[in-house]
Structures are given as structure tokens and as C-alpha cells.
């Protein structure tokens, strides 16, 4: 919502900006522009909720198309998460699966006319990253305990290293930077920047008129590919963060 004027200028018009334009000079216009990404996020949430509700309303022994698609998605995510984390993964499947479908829909909404990718807004990706980090932190505390987690942050100093102050301190700084700064920044900025870049490119190519249509179509294909790849990367990294925490206890 606090994007620079330059970034705004390259945006394609969407339903919210059109409405804001119509209500220009009123508090509604400011409200719409301020919560633009959230409005699209809520539209996607509503869409996903309706799909989930309709699909789960009449579950049959022989599934229809929607039920089969949902089963495929749920089974696929479950296999994916369990394949990486192991048998403990079942409890993390809903979280990672919801992230996956939510991010994928948000990424792909950029190519739908009059829509915008909420993930091109850093606040959106940062919010998702905060959810991931808080959950990973919670799992860390749950698995290792408070003392165990502090021990982990200090790099598990044992023997002579335990008596030195420098190395555990360095490990603490390293872990804090890694777990609380580098990871959230990289996770959120990677997704936001890729999707924002795709949206910018679409906006630029749209300005070429009829001549830009072939390039626009090709770029749309690239956007779809990038959207899927970035979704997979985000969820894969999330799963790996869980894995690191869970296997830490075992090792």
C-alpha cells in the first residue's frame, strides 16, 4: 500500500483502482487504494472457501470432477510434505497446503483481467512469512523446549567450547540473523519481487498495443510458470524449515 509512485504508474488497472478512480477525492477512494491487496486477498479467500465448501458438501464414493481435483490436491500436498518431513508431517499438511493454494491463486490472479496479484505487495508476503516463522518458532519450542531452543541458538556448545564465550555468542548472533532476519526477508522478498516483476512486465507489454500481443501471450505463459515455481519454492522452503526443526531434535 505504500508503494512508490513509479511502481503505481506501471500497474494495470484493476477493479479496485477503477472504483477508487470513480470515487476520487472521497475517503472510500483512499480506503480502497490502501487496502487494495487485502481486498484481492479476501476475494481469493472467498473463492477458495466456496470451492472447499462446495467440494466437501457431498463427498461421494465415486468422486466428481471437483471432488477428484480436491482429492488430487490434498493427496499431492500430503505426499509432498510427508516425503520431506516424514510421518510426523500430517499435522503440518493443512498449513503448508493452505499456503500453497493461497499463494498460487494470489500469484495467478495477476493474469486475470481486472485483478491484481496480492503477492506483488511485500506486506502480503511478509504476513505469510511471519505466519511461517511464528509456526516454525512454536514447533521449535514444542520440540526442543525453551532451554533446548536457547541451546540450539547458542550452537549446542559442549566440552571446551562451552567455556568460551565468543563462539556461543557468535553462534547466537548467527542464528538470530539467520532465523529472524535473513530467512523472513529472503522468503518474503523472493516471492514478492518475482511476482511484482511479472506484473510490471505484463503492464509494460500491455502498453505496446496490438504489436505487443505475441510478447504478452508468451509472457503470460512465463507468469504462469513463475507463479507455480515461486509457490513451490515458498512452500518447499517452509517445509524445509519445519524439517530442520524436527530433525534437529532427532539428531
Amino acid at each position: 500500500m505504500t508503494e512508490t509512485a513509479g511502481e503505481k504508474a506501471l500497474e494495470l488497472p484493476n477493479i479496485v483502482t477503477i472504483l477508487a478512480e470513480k470515487a476520487k477525492g472521497t475517503p472510500l477512494s483512499d480506503f480502497l487504494l490502501t487496502w487494495q491487496s487485502l481486498i484481492f486477498s479476501l476475494i481469493i479467500i472467498m473463492l477458495l472457501s466456496v470451492i472447499a465448501y462446495v467440494a466437501s458438501r457431498k463427498i461421494k464414493e465415486v468422486p466428481g470432477r471437483l471432488q477428484a481435483a480436491c482429492e488430487l490436491f490434498v493427496g499431492g500436498v500430503d505426499d509432498f510434505v510427508r516425503g520431506i518431513i516424514g510421518d510426523k508431517a500430517r499435522i503440518y499438511t493443512p498449513f503448508i497446503g493452505t499456503l500453497f493454494i493461497y499463494i498460487l491463486f494470489m500469484n495467478l490472479s495477476g493474469i486475470v483481467p481486472l485483478m491484481k496479484s496480492p503477492t506483488s505487495n511485500w506486506s502480503t508476503t511478509m504476513a505469510l512469512t511471519i505466519c511461517v516463522m511464528l509456526y516454525v518458532f512454536y514447533v521449535s519450542i514444542k520440540e526442543m523446549g525453551v532451554i533446548g531452543y536457547i541451546d540450539h541458538l547458542l550452537g549446542k556448545p559442549r566440552g571446551i567450547i562451552a567455556f568460551s564465550v565468543f563462539i556461543p555468542l557468535m553462534m547466537l548472533v548467527l542464528h538470530i540473523v539467520s532465523d529472524f532476519i535473513a530467512r523472513p526477508l529472503s522468503l518474503s522478498l523472493r516471492l514478492r519481487s518475482n511476482i511484482w516483476g511479472d506484473d510490471m512486465l505484463l503492464a509494460v507489454l500491455s502498453g505496446f498495443g496490438a504489436k505487443g500481443i505475441p510478447l504478452l501471450l508468451f509472457n503470460t505463459f512465463l507468469v504462469i510458470l513463475a507463479s507455480i515455481v515461486q509457490t513451490v519454492v515458498f512452500c518447499l522452503l517452509t517445509t524445509i524449515y519445519f524439517t530442520l526443526v524436527l530433525t534437529h531434535e532427532e539428531t
Binding site: M1, A52, P94, T98, T124, A127
Partner: peptide, 28 residues
Amino acid sequence: EIVAQVISFLLLLFILRKFLWNKFTKVL
């Protein structure tokens, strides 16, 4: 916006957990 997005995501997580994950994992 971050807070609002966090709440939105948690809302979606709650809805999908209820209608999608719980039901379909049970079916599978």
C-alpha cells in the same frame, strides 16, 4: 496490512482445515 493479511490467512487456514483438509484427508 501485515496484521490484516495474517488474520486473513488464519481465517482461510481455519476454513480450509474445516472443509478441505479434515474431510478430504479422512476420505483419502
